[in-house]
Amino acid sequence: MAADIPTDGISLRFKSGPVTTFLFVDRSATFTSIGNRLLDALRERYPHGLPETAMLPDTTPLPAAGEGDARVVFGVPRNPRDLSVGWKPLNTDNGETPTSLRLRENSVLAFTIQSGDSIGGTPSFHVEIPTFEEEQLGEEDEEE
């Protein structure tokens, strides 16, 4: 018997530093609720903080559940075919949803977490995009 696959959802990829988190979200969910789901997933996966880079053990602490002054800010690629070009902030303050922003299945969004004095400021998105050469080096290391 085939499994029923919900058709009211969309898979999105959220990137920060070296981390990519896939979430299946409701197309009509607001980005406030999507941000809360993303934080819950990150807290579970990275209880000691979100990795900042692939090479260094530095982490960014995640806000505790229920911490009222933290919010997730999202960005879209300046060029969807070349993520290294950078990201522009996505305005999600008016209850936008994946549907209202016309996001497609497997869309990529950068994210950053703002809290305290940084809330409302211009967000800065740090996303590490692996290159083909880096991926080849990683495969060679695994073969040894």
Rank of each mutant, 00 (worst) to 15 (best):
I129N: 11
P89G: 15
D26S: 05
E143Y: 08
P63G: 11
S124W: 00
P51C: 12
D40Q: 10
S115C: 08
A41C: 12
V72A: 08
A54G: 15
I113T: 00
L23E: 01
L50M: 12
E44W: 14
D26K: 04
H48W: 04
I113V: 05
F24H: 01
A3F: 04
V127K: 02
R104N: 11
G121A: 07
F132W: 12
E52W: 04
V127C: 06
F111E: 00
L38V: 02
E140W: 13
S118Y: 01
L23N: 02
A3L: 12
N91R: 14
L12T: 06
T20Y: 03
A41W: 07
V19M: 02
A110F: 03
Y46E: 07
M1W: 12
P63S: 08
P98N: 01
S118T: 14
P63H: 09
G120S: 03
R81D: 15
S115P: 01
W87I: 09
K88V: 11
F14K: 03
N79C: 11
I10T: 10
N106G: 04
N91V: 12
I5E: 14
I5D: 13
P80K: 05
S84Q: 14
W87P: 15
L50N: 11
T99F: 06
P89Q: 15
L103W: 01
L38F: 08
Q114W: 05
F132E: 13
D69E: 14
P89L: 10
D26A: 06
P18T: 09
E135A: 15
D93Q: 10
